[in-house]
């Protein structure tokens, strides 16, 4: 083996070793998470691929990663067994309001009489003026089930993916937003 080739070989081996080690910073970070206790560390260390990427890139993904990210998120969307993407708006309102399920008022305005709503997301009052075409219903369903399939790393969380609400409840949320009878669309 020539001298040049040996140097190259040694460099590749060192580089390989370096890349497979947990970085000292990551090790220190994980130690801090464990210092926070078992329960805390368990959740913080069980990030899925999407959460890990959003953390790594501070919620601004490089453009070349976006197509794959969106496709992977889209693949996580599940649909109701009966295929209906628009369900019962009355149950939808319950899921929308429940802090443990939708918790939608945290960020969005909804029924006009509810004044204790957040302002981080767009107002959903009169969302139904978009109509109930198949495209609108499908977009609304998929956006609610997995917001990251449309906007990577958005504040809007992936309630359906995490099981905060079921596919059937997602369809109920769609109805709450789109049904002309829903209070969100009535004065």
């Amino acid at each position: 083996m020539t001298k040049k080739a040996s140097i190259l070989l040694v460099s590749v081996v060192i580089l390989g070793l370096g890349l497979t080690q947990v970085s000292p910073f990551r090790a220190r970070f994980e130690a801090a998470l464990h210092a926070g206790g078992h329960e805390f560390a368990k959740v913080m260390l069980s990030q899925d691929k999407g959460q890990a990427l959003c953390s790594q890139y501070r919620d601004k993904l490089p453009p070349d990663l976006i197509p794959t990210f969106l496709a992977e998120q889209k693949a996580l969307i599940k649909y109701p067994a009966n295929g209906k993407l628009m369900g019962d708006w009355k149950n939808g309102e319950k899921v929308f309001t429940d802090p443990k399920r939708g918790n939608c008022y945290a960020c969005h305005a909804g029924v006009a009489s509810e004044v204790a709503h957040g302002t981080m997301g767009p107002s959903l009052t009169n969302y139904g003026q978009r109509g109930t075409s198949e495209a609108v219903v499908r977009y609304t369903y998929e956006k609610i089930f997995n917001a990251w399939a449309f906007v990577p790393c958005s504040l809007m969380y992936r309630g359906g993916v995490h099981g905060l609400f079921t596919p059937e409840e997602t369809a109920d949320l769609v109805a709450f937003l789109l049904d002309p009878e829903s209070p969100i669309n009535r004065r």
């Binding site: 970070f29 913080m44 953390s55 919620d59 969380y157």
Partner: peptide, 17 residues
């Protein structure tokens, strides 16, 4: 690093809000 870490069933971090 903690500030930007997104985790849990609500995909949250401190930074995102």
């Amino acid at each position: 690093e903690l500030w930007y870490t997104r985790a849990g069933a609500r995909d949250m971090s401190c930074a995102i809000c």
